[in-house]
Design a protein around this nucleic acid. Structure first.
Lengths: 225, 225
DNA sequence: CGGCATCCATTTTGATACTG
DNA sequence: CAGTATCAAAATGGATGCCG
């Protein structure tokens, strides 16, 4: 059966023909944190229905956004990872995520609402300018709303690790709403006022640097009009 | 009945809960070109089905992204327009559109594929830094693939007009693929090589300025990772 | 088990017809 | 013009089965 299309000669329409269906962009978000197995995706995307996930992966594979990779013998499992074209979607997802933080976070986290710190850290990672981090080697552990993920900056390369790492330069503990203020406001929030909702354990200078890196990027992506 | 939700405490998921359904972002794109009537939307969004359009508009209205406005007596019709929150989605749609231009324009325009120059010009408009245009008053007529739209820059305010205007400072005639090179490449394309596919009629300096304004914005939105 | 494919109930969407 | 009503087709969600 032919694929459904908006049939419009327009960059946005053609993007949405590929990634506009339900769950697709969330699968991309998951894979922005690194390669994952099928069951990892099922776990993270609560409610997706395994058949639909298989269908989506197949499409993303055909369209060249996701590639299947087979891990060497010890692991012997297969994982899915983004291709370069898939990774470039990060630049498009970040502003959408920021829009959501600005306009849909008046209501706090619901009791049954899922959360994984890596979702947040993936976008933080995408906000960091690789060029500005050449020569740097930092590992930042984030603990957000009872979930954890780490951000590793390695000479211009930025990587996200779900959960806890054991060699972090600094541990930042806070909640998503507080962190969102850093990513969505034009002015960096007053650190003193925020202090009771954000604690830094370890090299304070590293944490400071992170917030500066984020601030630099924000300046280039102020809302238009 | 309750609205379907991904049920994730994540900026992206919450955005998609609101605007992730089919046609929604294209309705927003249409309204970025200015207020439109119901029938204008039906015309522009070929294939949408009027009942679905009505449903989407109702949702966008409830969610505070779109407002209904009643034109004064002479016209006596109602139009839909974006609220400030809705307009801020432009910043999120531009990178998605650029991704589509980069990765989905290997195949050219199909014979039956719809096209409206305003779709393109809306994104051009969003790429222009308002601050950089303070004091400027320019009207640029674009003619792209047999469709026309104009871009008016008015002291930091940018507006799109579908069709032809009669007082343009310059008329740029080209096709979307050529124009896309300006918006998607890191280097501005060689004007000499492009000359046969792009003609400028009127104040050449104004056209030059437009491309410089676009180039400035591109520099701040290079792909991450 | 992990990685799907099949089947079926429920929603969403598309297309057209109809109405104030 | 601005929708609503209706109905068919497709997409989605959930459960279960199968196979290495």
């Amino acid at each position: 059966m032919a694929r459904r299309s908006y049939n419009q000669y327009c960059g946005l329409s053609r993007s949405l023909d590929l990634v506009g269906e339900r769950w697709t962009l969330l699968i991309v978000r998951e894979l922005l944190a690194g390669p994952k197995r099928y069951s990892d995706l099922v776990d993270a995307l609560d409610g997706i229905g395994t058949n639909l996930l298989a269908t989506r992966i197949k499409q993303l594979d055909q369209d060249g956004l996701v590639a299947r990779r087979y891990l060497p013998p010890p692991a012997a499992s297969q994982v899915y990872e983004l291709t370069p074209a898939g990774r470039e979607l990060a630049a498009a997802l970040v502003p959408l995520a920021i829009w959501g933080l600005r306009h849909r976070f008046d209501e706090p986290r619901r009791r049954d609402e899922n959360y994984r710190a890596e979702w947040t850290v993936v976008f933080l990672a995408a906000l960091i300018d690789p060029v500005a981090t050449t020569g740097m080697h930092l590992v930042i552990q984030l603990r957000l709303d009872d979930s954890a993920a780490a951000l590793a900056i390695d000479d211009g390369r930025v990587a996200v690790t779900p959960g806890e790492v054991d060699h972090a330069d600094v541990v930042v503990t806070t909640d998503l709403r507080t962190l969102a203020e850093f990513a969505t406001r034009d002015q960096a929030p007053d650190l003193a006022k925020v202090a009771e909702r954000l604690t830094v354990d370890g090299d304070m200078a590293v944490a400071q640097l992170l917030f500066e890196l984020l601030a630099d990027r924000r300046a280039g992506s102020t809302p238009v009009w």
